[in-house]
Write a protein that binds this DNA or RNA. Structure first.
Lengths: 101, 101
DNA sequence: ATTGTATATTCTTGTCAAGGAATATACAAT
DNA sequence: ATTGTATATTCCTTGACAAGAATATACAAT
């Protein structure tokens, strides 16, 4: 798992942007208004998200519609899902321990 | 979802530490040796992870055994899991669109 | 008590990234 | 062509944070 995705989501405003885009794809202005961010910072954050592969852009007239991409979130889900193995093993150890094994 | 957990995982060495601890709980020295980090930086990173609530500490003699905590990872899994709703809705829209609805 | 081992903390320094302000670019509309 | 709208980019300043080096603290062993 690359830290890049975590880095992208670590910035509070960027995380909020992702939450907004989870609602629906949006233009820079829509995001900007919803989150009360200045337009340039909104563009910059969206650029970072795009570089990290979290969003895609689709030009419509002068607007640019940003949407979430699926893959990185699926990857993230797989990664964090793989931790179940860890919890289970810990529980097994605990069990064995309680049985004085 | 708080950005704190993402921030903790955004630092490459800290992410590696989490991967190590996913294998098994470890002392500072073990982590330090495995990742070829200096002891102070290892301690610092573990401290950040602890502050973020990702790990817990258990003193054993002079050693401190760090282990992953379950909750934050479960929270993360829930959060990213909630994105399925988004993908599905997008797919529905596509479907309607293809049917010229 | 002293020495050794394990870990934490402090201080300093350099780098990077975020915000603000200004400007540039792209396309639309008249 | 000119004006307006939407977005991107640049420059600057400032704050955060990671590494390195040195030191402090905690506990163990002899």
């Amino acid at each position: 798992m690359s830290p890049t995705i975590f880095n992208a989501l670590a910035e509070p405003n960027r995380l909020k942007i992702v939450e907004v885009l989870r609602g629906r794809p949006s233009s820079v202005n829509e995001v900007s208004l919803l989150l009360k961010l200045r337009q340039p910072q909104t563009s910059k954050h969206l650029h970072v998200l795009a570089e990290a592969g979290l969003v895609s852009v689709k030009p419509v007239a002068q607007q640019r519609i940003y949407s979430l991409k699926a893959e990185p979130f699926i990857q993230l889900e797989d990664w964090v899902g793989s931790f179940h193995q860890y919890w289970n093993q810990r529980l097994d150890n605990l069990e064995r321990h309680l049985k004085k094994g």
